[in-house]
Design a protein around this nucleic acid. Structure first.
Lengths: 157, 157
DNA sequence: GCAGATAGACAATGTTGTTGTCTATATAGT
DNA sequence: ACTATATAGACAACAACATTGTCTATCTGC
């Protein structure tokens, strides 16, 4: 069973992540948000309360402006964001979350809070805090948020 | 800074994963394996020492046979795998790793072993074992290995 | 005002997936 | 043995998400 096992921790990390995200989206589906996909969750979190420009959005997601514009277009179709002309810069577009998107974020937040409570209870507060602290150290300085477009793409752009 | 922060742990998980995989491929690049990408690492681990059929390969990766066949084709181009007619089933293709692929796996294994040693030293054995154990509990029953094609795709296929 | 930078659209293309369909071979039931 | 069905994998068309390159409109600093 351990044939070719090249490293354990990385698989535990991605496996845990996948497990919790899968659970989240199962939950969201049960609430009727059945067209929201993991990518959209990442994207929604990159939109500040006052909205963001497409360029800033692309930076937060770690993709090109063009890719970000397409993501915005698809999320607009899903009723998750709206595009408004920027008042102070007529070149720019201000992208804001819709109420629907806010609901998705709120439900996701509740889900994660519940999940973390579960884990804390299951592990014990000490072990749980230790887990968090250890992971924080692993993500060196800054927790990288530009995940979409990363896996499966060339590391060397 | 915590505006819209919907959940901390998931980001720590994916962030840590990304950090270590990025480091691995930086290392591999420094060794001359500059055309091997994260996807290939997942794929190579799914190839047993005696080789696998394309169908079995597709199951291990969690993708369709067609997608697996394309991955095999691209890895063949990179000199990572070879295709042989199966001796006992003339419909089937046996896919084996090349020496180059074995080297990549070996170097990856070394890298991860070194990384885990570093972390163990940095955290202390107790905290490190706790981290591992906690993550194992998070990955419910089985650590999911079918990662490619997951992020960014529809959860509901 | 003008030169250069920036915002974002449009087009073409690459990578990695998907469904659907097809042929060849294997296997199980009669 | 014969036939029905299942399986292995190829081929084709297409979807999703990214890329690079190019273009226009607008902004900003001198």
């Amino acid at each position: 069973m351990t044939e070719n096992q090249v490293g354990e921790l990385p698989f535990l990390l991605i496996g845990s992540f996948r497990a919790v995200i899968d659970e989240l989206h199962e939950h969201l589906r049960s609430l009727g948000y059945d067209d929201v996909r993991p990518l959209h969750g990442f994207a929604l979190q990159s939109i500040s309360d006052g909205g963001v420009s497409i360029t800033e959005f692309s930076h937060r997601l770690g993709v090109t402006k063009q890719a970000a514009a397409k993501t915005v277009a698809s999320m607009e179709q899903l009723g998750l964001v709206q595009r408004h002309p920027d008042q102070t810069d007529s070149r720019a577009t201000n992208v804001t979350r819709t109420e629907r998107a806010d609901n998705v974020l709120r439900e996701s937040g509740r889900f994660f809070a519940r999940k973390e409570r579960e884990w804390r209870d299951a592990f014990g507060a000490d072990r749980f805090e230790n887990l968090l602290a250890a992971l924080q150290e692993l993500t060196s300085p800054a927790p990288e948020t530009s995940i979409p477009g990363w896996l499966g793409r060339a590391t060397r752009t």
